[in-house]
């Protein structure tokens, strides 16, 4: 069998309708941007799931490491004053 090349791996993000955030829905293989876009439409929007598509080459994605997850996200753990429930408001005060 000759050497096989199945193309580059792309990550697909869909916007379900205008104004909504784009969400990761899966991946696909394609050789160039145009082919990736057509495949993304055919693979991920056959039933009107999206009105917008973002494509990113998987190799270009920067992600956090699960193993240093706890330490990495630690700075947000002890700052309860970032949440509205931290503050006490006198009884009877409205619209705040």
């Amino acid at each position: 069998m000759s050497e096989d090349n199945q193309g580059i791996l792309w990550e697909v993000f869909l916007q379900p309708k205008p104004g909504r955030p784009f969400k990761h829905v899966g991946s696909l293989h394609a050789y160039d941007k145009k082919m990736a876009m057509t495949s993304a439409r055919d693979l991920y929007t056959r039933r009107g799931e999206g009105k917008g598509i973002w494509l990113v080459k998987s190799q270009d994605i920067v992600s956090s490491h699960p193993e240093d997850g706890e330490a990495f996200f630690d700075p947000s753990n002890d700052k309860v004053y970032r949440h509205p429930t931290f503050y006490s408001i006198p009884d009877g005060v409205k619209h705040i």
């Binding site: 000759s2 096989d4 090349n5 193309g7 050789y31 160039d32 941007k33 082919m35």
Partner: peptide, 16 residues
Amino acid sequence: GQWVREAAIAYADKIN
């Protein structure tokens, strides 16, 4: 499909 993959790779190289 081999020739299709080859053509697609050649096209992608050209675009790049």
